[in-house]
Simulated assay, not measured.
Amino acid sequence: MIDYFSIALTHGLILFACWRLLFRDDLDSESGVSGKAPRPWLRQQDDNADA
């Protein structure tokens, strides 16, 4: 027997995720990402490269 609650729950969560993705503000931008994104986890490597 099919568990309709689990099917409805999983499909509902997928629809909710799609809904949230479709209405993001950054999806309306045509310019893309300008410049390099800051990567603080690489700060240590950048400091060692300068030395």
Results as ranks from 00 to 15, higher is better:
M1Q: 13
M1S: 15
I2K: 07
I2H: 10
D3P: 00
D3H: 09
D3W: 05
Y4H: 14
Y4A: 15
Y4V: 15
F5M: 05
F5S: 09
S6P: 00
S6E: 10
I7V: 13
I7Q: 09
I7T: 12
A8L: 12
L9T: 05
T10Y: 05
T10S: 14
T10Q: 03
H11E: 06
H11F: 11
G12V: 02
G12W: 01
G12C: 01
G12F: 00
G12P: 00
L13K: 01
L13M: 09
L13E: 03
I14K: 03
I14C: 04
L15I: 07
F16D: 02
F16H: 02
F16A: 07
F16R: 01
F16T: 04
F16I: 06
F16N: 01
A17D: 02
A17I: 09
A17F: 06
C18T: 02
C18N: 06
C18E: 02
W19H: 04
W19S: 00
W19K: 00
W19F: 14
R20F: 06
R20K: 15
R20H: 05
R20L: 10
L21E: 02
L21C: 01
L21M: 14
F23D: 01
F23Y: 04
R24L: 02
R24Y: 00
R24D: 01
D25H: 05
D25N: 08
D25Y: 03
D26H: 08
D26E: 13
D26M: 03
D26I: 08
D26F: 01
L27W: 01
D28E: 06
D28Q: 08
D28V: 00
S29W: 04
S29D: 08
S29M: 03
S29F: 01
E30I: 07
S31W: 02
S31K: 11
S31D: 09
S31E: 14
S31T: 09
G32Y: 04
G32C: 12
G32W: 07
V33F: 13
V33Q: 13
V33W: 15
V33H: 06
G35V: 12
G35S: 07
G35K: 15
G35A: 12
K36V: 12
K36I: 07
K36G: 09
A37D: 10
A37F: 15
P38L: 15
P38S: 15
P38M: 10
P38K: 15
P38W: 11
R39A: 14
P40D: 09
P40V: 08
P40W: 03
W41Q: 07
L42F: 14
R43G: 04
R43S: 13
R43P: 00
Q44K: 11
Q44I: 10
Q44C: 11
Q44T: 13
Q45W: 14
Q45H: 11
Q45G: 05
D46T: 10
D46N: 05
D46A: 07
D46M: 08
D46Y: 08
D46I: 05
D47G: 03
N48D: 10
N48K: 14
N48G: 03
A49L: 11
A49P: 00
A49Q: 07
A49W: 04
D50C: 11
D50K: 14
A51V: 13
A51H: 12
A51S: 10
A51T: 14
